[in-house]
């Protein structure tokens, strides 16, 4: 799964070697520019678009991957944007819709670039440097560590369900079964959290987060 998210996070390029804060600042400034520049200065959008594609190509992220991700993203931004002209009786709101879709895609591509040049653990260290409270970073780190475990658990439950020939049924029945699966997953995860908490306590956990770089 993580292979799909930040597939190119571990490759080597100038973009990957940039200081993390600079990457973050670059991404934020391009997104802000994309949202804030009025439509009448449309040449600026061309420049931003070129910048984004240049960034992707320097980072070595192939076009096919971008297109694949965009195709997943487009229905989401599209369904929201299409509701604008739909609600106006199809005679207004088309230009606003296009504007939203364009800005959305631009920002999405910038985010995608950032995700692919900055692996999650680097983001955590950066957040820590930016004085985000230690407990927030600790929870995020914990989440990132265990989301894959919970995922595997979910996969196991899916396999078990398939092995017992679960299929069809009324919508109500299927919703009930799927929700029960989430409920059981929740109980199992919280049981696991209690075990982890016990293990943490036995290793001297007192609720305070200590980071190695705090001692510098």
């Amino acid at each position: 799964m993580s292979d799909f998210w930040d597939r190119y996070g571990r490759s080597v390029s100038i973009c990957h070697r940039m200081p993390p804060v600079l990457k973050l600042a670059l991404a934020i400034s391009v997104i802000v520019a994309g949202v804030a520049i009025p439509v009448r200065y449309w040449p600026a959008y061309g420049v931003l678009g070129c910048l984004v594609f240049a960034g992707h190509s320097i980072a070595g992220i192939p076009l096919g991957y971008l297109i694949k991700r965009l195709l997943i993203f487009l229905p989401f931004v599209g369904s929201m944007a299409i509701s604008l002209p739909l609600s106006q009786g199809l005679d207004r709101g088309w230009d606003l819709m296009l504007q939203i879709m364009f800005r959305g895609c631009l920002a999405f591509l910038v985010s995608l670039w950032l995700v692919n040049v900055m692996p999650f653990e680097q983001l955590l260290v950066t957040l820590r440097k930016l004085k985000v409270p230690a407990v927030v970073v600790a929870i995020l780190a914990f989440m990132y560590r265990y989301v894959f475990v919970v995922w595997d658990e979910l996969d196991k439950m899916r396999t078990a369900r398939k092995a017992r020939s679960f299929s069809g049924g009324s919508l109500w029945f299927r919703w009930r079964t799927l929700s029960q699966m989430i409920g059981m997953l929740l109980i199992r995860s919280l049981n696991r959290a209690e075990r982890i908490h016990g293990a943490m306590c036995s290793r001297g956990w007192d609720g305070e987060v200590h980071w190695l770089d705090d001692q510098d």
Binding site: A138, V150, L154, A193, M200
Partner: peptide, 22 residues
């Protein structure tokens, strides 16, 4: 002191639970 493990695990769970398609 249960804050970090419980909140983190709940976060992971919501994250994974959103992958279940209804």
């Amino acid at each position: 002191e249960r804050t970090v493990p419980l909140t983190g695990m709940m976060g992971s769970l919501i994250f994974a639970g959103q992958m279940v398609n209804f």
